[in-house]
Design a binder for these strands. Structure first.
Length: 442
RNA sequence: GGAGGGUUGGCUGAGUGGUCGAAAGCGCCGCACUCGAAAUGCGGUAAGGGAGCAAUCUCUUCGCAGGUUCAAAUCCUGCACCCUCCGCCA
């Protein structure tokens, strides 16, 4: 969400951003509704002021006659308010619904593009391995090593379900522990956040495109039945499964006013993530690449409202992802995300993609985003600056390490001629017996 | 599954229909006293929105949403959340 004043003053620029982000929004209607909203509110407030005056007069009224007269007058005004107020509320609702769809502006270095094809590669790192033997993809490796069972996953969990087994479990948990410790060493406070949350956390971070959950467009699972509350009755409030720790970590601070000297706040979260993949029918239907649930370590930062500093912070966060890919020994590239591939709230975004030899392509293993104050307005998170002024914080987030895709990259990049897979050195200390490789079962 | 208590300003907490945006204390800010500080004394101090250069004026808000009433922190209904006890369970 943006400030309405900012929208009024920069309407042409915002119209252009919306076009670039492929967001269809009637800005002329928004401005018209804004005007009407203001005039109706003023009318209502004037009537309320009048009513308040009369109420105060009643207590001082002398005699029943005077009282009666004032009460009559008050009723008259109340009737007027009862006509105007619903008009105001209706226009306010329309205003709010339009406001939440207004996209954030983008950074000067964000490429303008028509689709994901126009994302710009800004760096390529590591060496794509050359194999002197016929290679397998992660599906085959998972089977041969007996560490990944997609058939049983589909049997029990349905489409995109999976079981990780045996050394695969150790490897995956080692990845998570490595990522978590890395972040703690970098000064991020670790959290295990809730993954079953109220709608407000998802609205506030922009995972609902409108004011309410819309199962047609929002890639989020809603839990069908309410849970039992302390009084034994079923909760009527809807609950959702988060697709990343980001909403839970950021909503932790919702409705709070932070102190500037405590900023930036750096937090990382380990959580299970659930994605309905509603917009990706038929995409990546095979394998472990696109699944409905996985584990992930995520990082978020809340900082003072300073665009330049936020760009630097964003780069620093991305640098952590690069360091992790370097340390894992995965070849990767970094993409600057173009407008068309960017969600409404983002100011600047990068994806990191690891090379996956078995799939013979790059695969997204992380995404770093700077939302400036777009999320903070929705979540109502502010801070008091040095001059005592309240401002919305800037919020940034970045993938530290998700469980499935780097797992694929590790299997496919580090497979050996004998069918085994070498464990990246940095992970070995988290493996049972400091295991160095996973060997085929037969 | 059962029984009860609660949600008020930065915090503690009083307030059961108008004099309440709200006592008192703590905290914080200013001033006095002091060489300085502590202690003490005096004064100020909720948030959000709107109009105005400003002084200031004004609207909304006592968990949230409705309702009753000329008038609601206070009465009624629904919802959310927190807590205590018993039972069951990981």
């Amino acid at each position: 969400m943006l400030d309405i004043k900012f929208i009024r003053e920069n309407i042409e620029a915002i119209k252009q951003v919306a076009k670039d982000k492929k967001i269809d929004l009637d800005f002329d209607r928004l401005l018209a509704v804004d005007k009407e909203r203001i005039s109706l509110r003023q009318e209502v407030e004037q009537l309320q002021a009048l009513k308040n005056d009369l109420n105060a007069m009643i207590t001082k009224a002398e005699g029943d006659e005077e009282r009666k007269e004032i009460i009559e007058k008050g009723k008259e005004i109340k009737t007027k308010i009862e006509i105007k107020e619903p008009q105001y509320k209706k226009i306010k609702e329309e205003f709010d619904a339009l406001m939440v769809k207004v996209p954030n502006i983008v950074s000067a270095d964000t490429p303008v593009g028509k689709s994901g094809e126009d994302n710009v590669e800004v760096g390529k790192f590591g060496k794509i391995p050359e194999f002197g033997f016929p290679i397998k993809d992660h599906i085959q490796l998972g089977k041969d090593l007996d560490i990944l069972d997609l058939e049983k996953g589909a049997k029990v969990a349905g489409y995109r379900g999976y079981y990780v087994k045996n050394e695969g479990v150790s490897l995956m948990m080692a990845m998570m522990m490595y990522a978590l410790n890395k972040m703690i060493e970098k000064g991020y406070a670790p959290m295990i956040p809730p993954t079953l949350v109220k709608g407000s956390a998802l609205f506030g971070t922009g995972y609902f495109k409108g004011l309410e959950y819309d199962s047609e467009v929002d890639e989020v699972y809603q839990v069908a039945s309410g849970d039992k509350e302390a009084d034994g009755k079923s909760s009527k409030e809807k609950k959702f499964l988060v697709g990343t720790a980001e909403p839970s970590l950021l909503a932790y601070y919702s409705d709070e006013v932070l102190k500037e000297e405590n900023l930036p706040l750096k937090v990382c979260g380990y959580s299970q993530c659930y994605r309905s993949e509603i917009g990706s029918y038929g995409k990546d239907t095979r394998g472990f690449y696109r699944v409905h649930e996985f584990m992930k370590v995520e990082q978020v930062v809340l900082m003072a409202a300073d665009e330049e500093a936020s760009i630097k912070m964003h780069d620093d966060m991305l640098a952590i992802s690069k360091e992790i890919h370097d340390e894992l020994g995965l070849p990767y590239r970094v993409l600057s995300i173009c407008t068309a591939d960017m969600s409404a709230g983002k100011f600047r975004a990068f994806d990191i993609e690891a090379w996956m030899p078995g799939l013979d392509r790059w695969g997204e293993t992380g995404s770093a985003s700077n939302f400036t104050d777009w999320q903070a307005r929705r979540l109502n998170v502010k801070y008091v600056d040095k001059d005592g002024e309240k401002k919305h914080v800037y919020m940034l987030n970045n993938t530290v390490l998700p469980s499935p895709r780097p797992f694929i990259a590790i299997l496919e990049n580090f497979q050996q001629a004998d069918g085994s897979v070498l464990i990246p050195e940095v992970l070995r200390k988290y493996m049972p017996g400091n295991m160095e490789k996973i060997s085929p079962k037969k």
